[in-house]
Design a protein around this nucleic acid. Structure first.
Lengths: 156, 156
DNA sequence: TAGAACTTTCAGAGATCTGTAAACAGCATG
DNA sequence: CATGCTGTTTACAGATCTCTGAAAGTTCTA
């Protein structure tokens, strides 16, 4: 078994893990294909061939991946086809996305407190929830920023 | 519209958000029902009535929620029925769970590097990935521990 | 502007997943 | 030990979701 094949397997395995974690299966496969690809960028047709899926499926997958900041369209000189590649700093974007979820959870808790009041069974439970998520969010944001800074320094 | 009804709506809304984030819809509904409940604990029958679902659905939901540490069975004195309640420190458990995912991502990256080698297009991409997730995991663990410590102090 | 090369959209098929209802198992009590 | 009450499992039905194939749309070239 050659390295190429083993990489492909590793890509599929990671895609499956990401799917477990809530990401669309095909979306995850497209993402890992780009991540594990030996090429700098891939066209939609490349992805179709690599993953044995239709062009429509590729289209919807990239439509989900680009807004999140995981992949990007790259200008393709001399070719009319769109080229896609894995974005630098993609992981930090993904984490920021999850951080947004933390804020949402905090807001939801606050909303519940406003209805139930602080001094109730529900209120106390929601109080813990709110405190936890505001704490987490407050800590995570600077953490990601620090990483971004360190990473941009290393790259230059 | 009374407060009770508004709480129920808030619970359903949060459940929907959690479902977006990958959690099973019914599992999320059971969890939020317990979270927003005015009672200290609820029986399976309570949950059936509250959410209009069958006992089987409740069973599978709690089977998922308990191992994660989000809810717990509580000894029910005088009643033969199982009582469930939202766990103290549940959110920290949930976050730990997500931290496990971070480790998994790091491992996956390392595996890819071992196959592709450091000095390749793929290798460089995976290198960034590995560094990011080890960094994140290293930071997140003490962060959660700090919270747990602070929280247990506050409670006592 | 016509036409070619791609991409996106959309309706329908296929697969997956989830809840329900009913059978099964466990347990306390009379 | 039998009975009644609960929780759990499983086969099936219903719903949801996702991919495909084809048509429509877009963009670039000649």
């Amino acid at each position: 078994m050659d390295a190429d094949e083993r990489l492909r397997e590793a890509a599929e395995r990671l895609a499956l893990t990401l799917a477990q974690g809530g990401m669309q299966k095909t979306t995850a496969r497209v993402m890992t294909a780009l991540l594990y690809s030996g090429q700098e960028s891939m066209t939609a047709a490349d992805l179709c061939a690599e993953l044995s899926i239709s062009s429509g499926a590729v289209s919807t997958a990239v439509k989900q991946l680009i807004p999140i900041g995981l992949i990007e369209r790259v200008p393709a000189p001399g070719s009319r086809r769109d080229h896609y590649r894995f974005r630098h700093g993609a992981w930090a974007s993904l984490m920021s996305q999850q951080n947004a979820m933390l804020s949402l959870m905090g807001d939801a808790a606050q909303e519940g407190i406003d209805i139930a009041g602080e001094d109730s069974t529900t209120g106390r439970r929601l109080h813990e929830m709110r405190d936890f998520y505001t704490y987490m969010s407050d800590q995570l944001i600077p953490m990601i920023d620090t990483w971004r800074q360190q990473y941009s320094e290393r790259k230059s």
